[in-house]
């Protein structure tokens, strides 16, 4: 194969593009700009850490099943870890969102970082709802019978039926977690590609 032929291969082109956009020193940098030394930057990683806990405890719940999480004390414990990791996940995600909103962190071509965040937020809310209706207790019965009226009022109930336990469980433990993890990976990669957004007052200096 000639060099021009090699250059035209899609594998070569893909590798060069990835290398250009995300060299290793950008993917895992040694230092960060001075303004990153603030607690507000910790909440993205806090969200990420709690997401990892949510997935790990959810995996344990899936392995052992509902009888275990309702009837054994270790099952109750893992169930509680799952719930409280979700609480911390939403808590830190919302503080993260407020921080990025007031920093205007979508500036300088970071729209995709912001928008993947927005979509992850929406996906997380639906994951929360399907989780509540997958508990297999009176709480989940109550929530699903209330939610069906709201969703039917939008017409969505025809294909997203909160009274269909099998459908809700599979959305909760398969489809939505996969979506959330992929979106989060893209989100964090976008942050690494673009670098951390400079504060408003430094924007002009950076642009020069």
């Amino acid at each position: 194969m000639s060099t021009t032929e090699i250059d035209r291969q899609w594998t070569t082109r893909l590798r060069k593009r990835v290398e250009g956009k995300l060299p290793p020193e950008k993917l895992l940098p040694d230092t960060q700009p001075a303004y990153v030394a603030s607690w507000i930057y910790v909440f993205g990683v806090a969200t990420l850490s709690s997401l990892i806990l949510v997935i790990a405890t959810g995996t344990l719940l899936a392995i052992r099943g509902p009888i275990w999480w309702h009837q054994s004390s270790i099952g109750h414990f893992v169930n509680s870890l799952h719930l409280w990791s979700v609480e911390i996940f939403f808590f830190s995600m919302i503080i993260h969102l407020w921080g990025k909103f007031f920093m205007g962190a979508w500036r300088g071509g970071r729209q995709l970082t912001w928008m993947t965040g927005v979509v992850t937020f929406v996906v997380s809310i639906v994951t929360g709802l399907t989780g509540y209706v997958s508990q297999t207790n009176f709480d989940s019965q109550w929530i699903s019978t209330q939610a069906k009226d709201g969703i039917n009022a939008t017409g969505g109930g025809a294909f997203f039926n909160v009274l269909n336990f099998g459908q809700m469980l599979m959305w909760h433990i398969v489809l939505l977690p996969i979506a959330a993890v992929i979106l989060t990976a893209l989100h964090v990669l976008m942050v690494r590609v673009k670098g951390v957004v400079p504060p408003y007052e430094d924007e002009k200096k950076v642009a020069q």
Binding site: S38, W39, I40, V42, F43, F91, I95
Partner: peptide, 10 residues
């Protein structure tokens, strides 16, 4: 609590 944590982080 979220508002308090946000202000504290700043």
């Amino acid at each position: 609590l979220m508002v308090i944590t946000f202000v504290a982080a700043l």
